[in-house]
Amino acid sequence: MSDIIRVMIAKVGLDGHDRGVKIVARTLRDAGMDVIYTGLHRTPEEVVDAAVQEDVDVLGISILSGAHMTLFPKMLKLLEARDAEDILLIGGGVMPDEEAAALKAMGVKEILLQDTPPETIVTTIRRLVAERGPK
């Protein structure tokens, strides 16, 4: 109903590489979005609980630790368990193309790999929210 898109950007697990998420957060802020950043070393449960409380449109998870095939399916299950499947889960990081395809087949809305230009992140989020419709 509000035109301001709410995005949560989070890092889960043992992964201290936060330069990328900070750049993404800043890019989305400059595109006029409200960006909630959770900080480092969160558990999937903490992040999903936070996303539910904040009622975000999009939950963006950055994973650079290699644990994406474990963590993304877990987060999808947690969102489902909390009746929060309308929160659009997207991922960012480095992974083989076939694993990105597998995650999208499971229900992750988009995987943005390492060479994604900042504008593409903005347009991808706007497109996904427009497809879902107003809330």
Binding site: I4, A25, R26, L28, R29, D30, A31, G32, M33, D34, V35, I36, Y37, T38, G39, E45, E46, D49, A50, Q53, E54
Partner: peptide
């Protein structure tokens, strides 16, 4: 909020760690 783009970075949760997931706590930015 940014006076230029209208966007914002809401970072208060960073300091609230574990308590924000407690069933008796609700945090909203």
């Amino acid at each position: 909020s940014s006076p230029y783009s209208g966007g914002s970075i809401l970072g208060d949760r960073i300091r609230m760690g574990e308590i924000s997931s407690h069933p008796s706590v609700f945090v909203r930015s």
